[in-house]
């Protein structure tokens, strides 16, 4: 991993980063932002109710949070907490029942050009009739990016995910982890400002997952892209994120929003064995347990969290 501590550190005020407070009181990312300046992605009072024959099913009740430009934020919540629903609303694949998603200040009403999504089901998100290279190239071709530019972007993206050696393979000829790398390469080549990831590593084995987590950190640092990473894995959220937003159980609200004050340069072996990692993990775990039991943050009853305007 490259040493670029300043890049990540700029996202978090120093007093929070350096504070040596006990974790239960620590690091709430709740101080109001000076303005909407620097906010890349803004979720405002998002609500999603599915209409079914058996009556209405409220998947997401009221979600409000911001992601600043260049931040890597993990969304973690108990299973069935509407994570995927939320992501579909953010990516414009689904219209929310109420509330809004703002990308760079503009409301999202369909899949935005500045956004790329990496899905959990790598086997079903790549085109099996196209080779690796064609898969990565297709979105650019569709955007009518000139050929030379396209070739450069695809090469760089494949290089970045360590797949320069298999451009002529079909996705299904590759292992699961490699297929997910192709999906990540496709997202990178698209040059999004926001990268959404929906439990991208849930279906790969543990060792591959560790590699891919590091890959995401590297890519994020290198490209300065804003990443919203949805996961149900607590360790993963703490290891990856600069911030972790914990969701309550369904109907979903924000349970807690915490800053992960681990060093910007992380590695699987050492970071995971630091006391601070254990503390943060413990804290997130506890919150998830509370969420599962149905505990809701005080602010939820008022229909807003500390961040809302």
């Amino acid at each position: 991993m490259q040493l670029e501590p300043n890049l990540a550190a700029t996202n978090v005020p120093d007093e929070i980063r350096n504070a040596d407070t006990p974790c239960d009181k620590a690091m709430h990312a709740t101080e109001p932002l000076p303005s909407s300046e620097g906010v890349m992605l803004s979720v405002r009072g998002l609500k999603k109710v599915y209409q079914t024959d058996g009556g209405d099913n409220e998947a997401v009740r009221n979600l409000t949070f911001d992601v600043r430009a260049g931040e890597l934020v993990c969304l973690v919540g108990p299973s069935g907490s509407g994570k995927t629903t939320l992501l579909k609303c953010i990516s414009g694949l689904m219209a929310p029942t109420a509330g809004a998603v703002l990308l760079d200040g503009k409301p999202v009403s369909g899949p935005p050009k500045k956004m790329a999504v990496v899905f959990q089901e790598y086997g079903r998100s790549l085109f099996p009739w196209m080779r690796v290279r064609e898969n990565v190239e297709l979105p650019l071709k569709n955007q009518r990016v000139p050929k030379a530019e396209r070739t450069r972007l695809v090469n760089e993206a494949l290089e970045a995910v360590g797949l320069s050696h298999v451009p002529r393979s079909f996705p299904w000829q590759l292992s699961g982890g490699m297929q997910q790398r192709v999906a990540i390469a496709r997202a990178i080549a698209y040059q999004p400002e926001v990268l959404l990831m929906d439990e991208p590593f849930a279906a790969v084995d543990a060792q591959t997952r560790a590699d891919l987590e590091d890959l995401i950190r590297v890519v994020w640092k290198k490209l300065g892209v804003t990443v919203l990473f949805v996961t149900h894995d607590i360790d993963e959220s703490v290891y990856l994120g600069e911030r972790v937003i914990i969701l309550s159980s369904s109907p979903t609200v924000v349970q807690e929003d915490i800053v992960i004050d681990l060093p910007a340069d992380r590695d699987q072996l050492n970071t995971r064995s630091t006391p601070r990692f254990a503390e943060l993990r413990h804290h997130v775990y506890k919150q998830i347990q509370l969420a599962k039991k149905g505990h809701r943050p005080a602010s939820a009853s008022a229909g807003k969290d500390a961040r809302s305007d």
Binding site: S91, R124, S125, Y190
Partner: peptide
Amino acid sequence: DSVLSESARTYGL
């Protein structure tokens, strides 16, 4: 496939 279809949509196809 629904996931494939959504992938295509997010990339503006």
